[in-house]
Computed example of a mutant assay.
Amino acid sequence: MTEEAILQGCLKNEAAAQRELYNRYSPKMLAVCYRFAHNREDAEDMLQEGFIKVFSQMHTFQNKGAFEGWIRRIIVHTCINNLKKNKRFNESLDIVHAHGVQVREESVPSIVQAKQIVECIRILPIGYRTVLNLYAIEGYSHKEIADMLDIEESTSRSQYTRAKQMLEEILIRKKILTKPKEKSDWMVAIH
């Protein structure tokens, strides 16, 4: 089934088209949800809620840009809204460290699997993890993140800086990152 046929079928609420859309895009979108969620069950809940929004908002897609990108934006916003309802998320965004954080662009050997790094990202406090995902992986600006999360732009920047520092420490502790400067940027591996 072509993308256009799926779109037209979904606009007519055809179950076959909706099933095809879900089957085609749910694996990638589950990976997006998984990066934001506390566990797989939460990720699956976010995914389901996101696809309900996709189906209910299908009429707003205007064929400007990629359809997958449009779905991804809805899924990301669903994840963010879900996290904003979480008390731990809001408390995490308020964390202030007394010591200065030095950021270094670190690297990992090319043999390291991105899955290992994603698992390390999931160890980060929820606020750090969310800002890191939105900025480094999803490509949102700090201003956009601040608007999405109802925080100051400077808070987004500091959360990102702290997330990178903490992730670096986790990667070193887990022996994924072995020394401060290696040949390839470790942030590349998470894309």
Results as ranks from 00 to 15, higher is better:
26 S>F: 09
79 C>V: 07
22 Y>K: 07
4 E>K: 08
49 E>F: 05
129 R>A: 06
61 F>T: 10
127 G>A: 02
73 R>E: 13
105 E>K: 15
106 E>I: 06
7 L>N: 01
151 I>H: 07
72 R>Q: 09
151 I>V: 14
59 H>I: 11
54 V>Y: 09
24 R>F: 03
31 A>H: 07
164 K>G: 08
116 Q>W: 13
38 H>K: 14
41 E>W: 09
76 V>W: 12
37 A>N: 04
49 E>Q: 15
136 A>Q: 13
141 S>K: 12
139 G>H: 07
22 Y>F: 15
47 L>Y: 09
20 E>T: 11
45 D>G: 06
24 R>W: 01
28 K>M: 13
78 T>D: 05
136 A>Y: 01
159 Q>L: 12
177 L>K: 15
25 Y>I: 08
74 I>F: 08
90 N>P: 00
172 I>K: 14
189 A>L: 05
185 D>M: 06
139 G>W: 09
154 S>C: 01
9 G>K: 07
25 Y>R: 04
185 D>A: 08
23 N>Y: 08
55 F>E: 14
11 L>R: 15
127 G>R: 03
103 V>Y: 03
154 S>N: 05
104 R>I: 12
5 A>M: 10
6 I>R: 10
142 H>K: 06
86 N>Y: 01
177 L>F: 08
52 I>Q: 15
188 V>K: 12
53 K>A: 07
8 Q>W: 08
77 H>P: 00
21 L>H: 02
30 L>P: 00
110 S>G: 04
85 K>G: 04
21 L>G: 03
100 G>A: 11
102 Q>M: 14
134 L>C: 04
117 I>K: 02
20 E>Y: 04
18 Q>T: 04
101 V>K: 03
6 I>A: 10
27 P>M: 05
4 E>D: 02
102 Q>F: 07
74 I>N: 08
57 Q>P: 00
139 G>V: 14
175 K>P: 00
185 D>F: 01
30 L>W: 08
44 E>Y: 09
12 K>H: 04
18 Q>H: 06
179 K>V: 06
166 M>W: 09
44 E>V: 00
59 H>G: 04
76 V>S: 08
72 R>W: 07
47 L>M: 08
29 M>G: 10
29 M>L: 05
8 Q>M: 12
53 K>C: 02
64 K>A: 05
168 E>A: 12
